[in-house]
């Protein structure tokens, strides 16, 4: 379970303090599919980065399975990202020098999984997202939708409980967007918690629960 408690993130812009997040309290149950929707600048990506342990809050706390992530050092946060969270980005963010198989195996490399094991698992994951025939392709040789599917496979490589998507359909056409949402729904059915940030109401409508954000606050 993920819980935020008066989560606040303040950026210093010259003399002015800008509240990217202001006292956000949010509970996300295990196995939930939640969409966070809001205009750009509403703080949804900041919220996602804090939940994903990429960033530390100015005040307040994020609890993941009861652990206060604010109390962890950098390595502790890396550990959580590695074991519990899979990240999907709007820009796919694959390592362009590596092929699909190696990209998917990379988080397992950092986790210290044996080479044979991780290559086998990476191959299975790529087959699962429908790219079994493209495992040796470099990102530059794949379409946006294919790259995002590689990114989804990569997010799953350490078998995380939570998959976080920051505008995962933002850079692909509608049809590909549907495929990707379909994959995320499938992951949700497997029991994984899915948290997706989007500004597309149609995409958000496919989630089990939707939260709106504006000016750093969760509205409803």
């Amino acid at each position: 379970m993920i819980r935020t408690e008066n989560l606040t993130k303040v950026y210093q812009m010259g003399d002015a303090e800008v509240y990217a997040l202001h006292d956000v309290n949010l509970d996300i149950q295990d196995g939930e599919f939640i969409a966070i929707i809001g205009p750009s600048g509403s703080g949804k990506s900041t919220l996602l980065n804090l939940i994903g342990c990429l960033d530390k809050p100015t005040s307040g706390a994020v609890f993941i399975d009861g652990i206060n992530t604010g109390k962890l050092n950098e390595n502790g946060l890396a550990e959580i990202r590695r074991r519990k969270i899979g990240f999907i980005f709007q820009q796919f963010n694959l390592v362009h020098t590596l092929n699909a198989l190696e990209n998917v195996a990379l988080p397992m490399f950092f986790a210290g999984v044996k080479r044979e094991t991780r290559l086998k698992r990476a191959e299975e994951l790529l087959a699962k997202v429908g790219l079994g025939d493209r495992i040796y392709h470099k990102p530059s040789e794949m379409s946006g939708g294919q790259q995002q599917r590689v990114a989804i496979a990569r997010a799953l490589s350490n078998d995380p409980e939570v998959v976080i998507g920051d505008e995962p359909t933002g850079n692909v056409d509608t049809e590909t967007g549907n495929t990707i949402m379909g994959l995320l729904e499938g992951l949700n059915k497997e029991g994984r918690t899915i948290i997706v940030v989007t500004h597309d109401a149609e995409i958000a409508a496919r989630a089990g629960r939707t939260k709106r954000m504006r000016d750093g606050k969760v509205l409803d």
């Binding site: 990429l54 890396a78 550990e79 990202r81 980005f89 963010n93 988080p107 950092f110 997010a155």
Partner: peptide, 16 residues
């Protein structure tokens, strides 16, 4: 830099 960020996001520790 961007790639380092991505690697960290997918679980790379500082020492990696």
């Amino acid at each position: 830099t961007h790639e380092i960020g991505v690697m960290k996001a997918i679980g790379a520790k500082n020492r990696n």
